[in-house]
Design a protein around this nucleic acid. Structure first.
Lengths: 205, 205, 205, 205
DNA sequence: GATGAATGAGGATTCATTCAT
DNA sequence: AATGAATGAATCCTCATTCAT
């Protein structure tokens, strides 16, 4: 197994750096978003990144590894930042609002990344299983703990299963993002944060 | 002169018939669910359907048309049945519960179809756009009208945008289905209908 | 595993038929002889056979399988014919002469096949092992039995190991063929049969 | 201005030295023997030699040049040593025995070199032609002269063509070496020297 | 209508070689 | 002299689609 350059330590989630590795990842996000994973040609990614085709294989095992890496590094950064934001917040309602806001702000900032997240990362059952095992599970756990905390504080209703609520919140957010990338109207995704939080907290009634 | 046999009129949504066309659609659902759309080979679908490769092209324009047809015919049957179920129901809360139950029951009944619905139909932005334009829009409209009706009756809170609520409900249901197909545990999807309805109706607080 | 058309039963060793399978094998012999196995492009074989690239994969598992098949079918035919020729011959010296003649006549008749046999089939240790296990072993066994018969008849010296003699005869013949394909002079390979037999039978002294 | 360092004069045939050039040649013999010439990667040779990939190109024109060099330098050493061994020997039978012994001892001593010699050096017609023109021809000439000497002394039969006998002896030896490297049994190649000589000298009868 | 043998465009990947350091 | 990251040409194989039967 050929050694390869180690991933750079501090630019997680942004891919904005100028190392070849970062340029490849960023180019891949754009090309995947444009054409879809299966229709994306490695040559296109290379061209978009300004490197030779073969260079991609110095940094990644192949096309699929590029996609997985995008997801892994993006998710890691996403979760780290969310934890930081939650650090000083104690009221369960506020914690839910922060999580909701973070989700919509982060994806609303980068449409190509959102497309990859909502569409390309889900192109097969095998791939979805892979991802839902680790990273998505971590995210759902964070949401679940917020709910549990709210329930133990007596702020949230206790007859709802926390894991179920976590999935529901994720489902709503997920649909908002998908709807946004498919929408022909231009609007700020993050604008919907309050509405989502209101619905989740107060219900329909 | 018609290029191909017209679709039969009355077996929509089931694919259980024994015409070649139906057998192809059913086989395609299974093969797409098994391997994913891109990895599914036309030959495999033909073999599973018990027809020759070329026969598929007598009934469909190609592989993609098969997938689109699955979606179209499935969705049409789905919506027709939902409308029937809603026919005698008047209370907005009950109407929501019926819609939620229908969603989870229908997909919970056929895992392969659920996989195609949750995974394969979303494999590209172009495809998602196509579908969300018409059929998904119809479904969201039905949900929206239920919400509007509830609001005009004074049963539902009026400060929530009906379209937004419709998308949220869809998002929750969607996540429940996805979570179900990815789950290693065996459980009945429809069991979650009440929990979903409770959350939607009463909120977290 | 896709079924593939069964090999035709009666034209073993010649490849002169006009089925696609035979045309591919014959074309492969020529292209391998011309450029060497590793430098031979599948496209070239297809073009030489007058079929599309993909057609080769209907009949063979790949480039390597084509080479193996050439060897297998050629050798089978070779051994069958040798057995027939030996059928009516009883004197050990004559049997040796027939075997020697058969070897040189068969390869001397088809230079491209001789090149494949002497060069391309030996391009790797793994490949040589594969081939020497079965087919070459069969050939050596035939030669060995001729020697054993001669020894038991009291015609051949008994202090030589029959397997060793078989290998020696094979080695001499092999070198004559190789030398012939490398030679710039044009001569009939089969002309050397008597000389080889003389040397083998009478030795240098 | 010379493009590369001149080959060192005195370590011919051994490659055991510790100059980079020698280490590369020795590593190449091992890697070629292991994987075959075409499957051998330059990177592997470099790693085995403990040098950088690019360094190989300071000493050789490329992968093929490495293989040719191995052959050239090995053969030169082989022939020089054989000449020395023959220096004091006069009887034709003994001279033949010495040549046979030298062949089997030299290759029997280094299996990797034997593999390269029997397999890798013969991977293409073009390559075989190249080699048979010069070095192999020299070797055959040596053997031929031994035979001619024996004939003029009246020790060997005169009705055999000396060049033909030389090729035959070479063919037998070649087959013994090939058989040895393919054999699963462990045995000393040189043990067969007497048997070969016996057969060559006395024939089957 | 049905068949399935045949097609051939298309693309991920490899690896010998280069050259700036 | 030595390095090894980068290059990019080269090719085997896949598989959706066609069409003669």
């Amino acid at each position: 197994m050929p050694r390869r350059p180690a991933p750079p330590p501090h630019d997680i989630g942004s891919f904005r750096g100028t190392t070849k590795r970062e340029r490849i990842l960023r180019a891949a996000v754009d090309v995947f978003a444009q054409n879809g994973y299966f229709n994306a040609k490695v040559t296109e990614i290379a061209k978009a990144a300004g490197v030779a085709d073969g260079t991609i294989y110095l940094y990644f095992d192949g096309k699929e590894d590029v996609l997985i890496t995008i997801f892994r590094e993006y998710t890691r950064g996403y979760l780290e930042q969310l934890e930081k934001k939650l650090a000083g917040i104690n009221r369960p309602e506020d914690r839910i609002r922060v999580a909701i806001g973070h989700h919509l702000e982060t994806l609303g900032r980068d449409r190509a990344l959102a497309v990859v997240s909502q569409v390309e990362l889900r192109h097969s059952l095998k791939f979805m299983s892979l991802l839902s095992q680790q990273e998505v599970a971590d995210y759902l756990n964070m949401l679940r703990k917020i709910v549990e905390h709210g329930q133990s504080e007596g702020v949230f209703r206790r007859n709802l299963h926390p894991q179920f609520v976590a999935k529901s919140v994720f489902g709503i957010l997920d649909e908002m993002v998908t709807s946004w990338i498919l929408s022909e109207k231009e609007y700020e995704l993050a604008e919907q944060a309050d509405q989502v939080a209101d619905l989740v907290l107060a219900g329909l009634l």
